[in-house]
Amino acid sequence: MTDSVSLKPDLGRFGVWTFGAPKPEQAVEIEKLGYGALWIGGSPAGDLNYVEPILEQTETLQVATGIVNVWTAPAGEVAEAYHRVENAYPGRFLLGIGIGHPEHTDEYRKPYDVLVSYLDALDAAKVPTSRLVIAALGPKVLKLAAQRSAGAHPYLTTPEHTGSARELIGPTVYLAPEHKVVLSTDVDEAREIGRKTVDFYLNLSNYLNSWKRLGFTDKDVAKPGSDRLIDALVAYGTPDDIAARLNQHLEAGADHVTIQVLGGEDKLLPTLKELAGPLGLTG
């Protein structure tokens, strides 16, 4: 390892998760609202060419990947790109990596070993552990994240998962869960929107196993997902309702919560604007 893992990143209390890189002008508005970080999801490319245009247009907003897939992005390419971004915008980029899903990789062999080898390659290329987080759900990878990076970026989880993860990894490790939101007080509408996103993950064993460890049953996680499961994974209601749910992650031990707005791209900024006040942001 290249430096101490006890030095936590500082991305503020709340960030924004998007599927793919948003337009730089959207990032500018996100920064103005007071969100501390933009997480670019959807297995973005290892060249990180989408990062600089956002950092160039913003002043303090940090950009993170949530996550670069170790199966599709060579470690050497990612390390070179990391250093390029860091040299241009020191301290404003956090590299998130992850192993992906066994169902979507033809050669999904010993994923834990592949992740360890990838981390070895990043270490050799002097990517600092203090600017690296790992997608982690289960105990084994959470422990690896604590040992080999700044911390963990759990996706599609609950405050209960955050609490158990914090207990497992200890107080000094960075913990930044993602949570989905729908700004609607129409319960049926909110659940329908939530299910459209969650549906993809109901076929993936790593998520199914994670939910079962939290106490959800086979019936809960069978398609299309029980109301209980959807309500746990997707926060909805008034801005105050949603803010209260997101704050439960912080109360359970999260350092940072990254918010994924559902319902279409046109909902992104209006929802974030409505949430900024109840979340106590200063934008």
Score class of each variant (00 low, 15 high):
226 S>L: 07
89 Y>E: 13
83 H>L: 08
144 L>W: 00
277 G>M: 10
167 E>A: 14
198 V>Q: 03
90 P>Q: 06
128 P>D: 13
136 A>C: 12
146 A>G: 13
257 V>R: 00
95 L>K: 01
212 K>P: 11
131 R>C: 12
9 P>T: 03
51 V>P: 15
178 E>G: 01
76 G>D: 13
116 V>L: 06
132 L>H: 00
198 V>I: 15
154 P>C: 01
139 P>N: 14
106 D>H: 08
196 K>W: 09
24 P>T: 04
148 R>M: 04
65 T>V: 08
212 K>V: 09
193 I>P: 06
188 D>N: 11
241 D>L: 04
97 I>G: 05
57 Q>L: 14
122 L>Q: 07
67 I>W: 00
281 L>Q: 11
121 A>S: 14
139 P>T: 12
176 A>H: 00
243 A>C: 10
39 W>P: 07
191 R>E: 10
216 F>K: 02
234 V>R: 04
76 G>S: 08
270 P>I: 02
91 G>I: 10
54 I>L: 07
195 R>N: 10
121 A>Y: 03
150 A>C: 10
81 A>R: 04
82 Y>Q: 13
86 E>Y: 00
28 V>P: 09
243 A>H: 07
63 V>H: 01
169 I>N: 01
262 L>Y: 03
40 I>F: 00
148 R>I: 04
156 L>F: 07
233 L>E: 09
163 G>E: 10
23 K>C: 08
128 P>F: 04
269 L>A: 06
276 A>C: 09
33 L>A: 13
209 N>T: 15
224 P>L: 08
204 L>R: 03
163 G>W: 03
93 F>G: 12
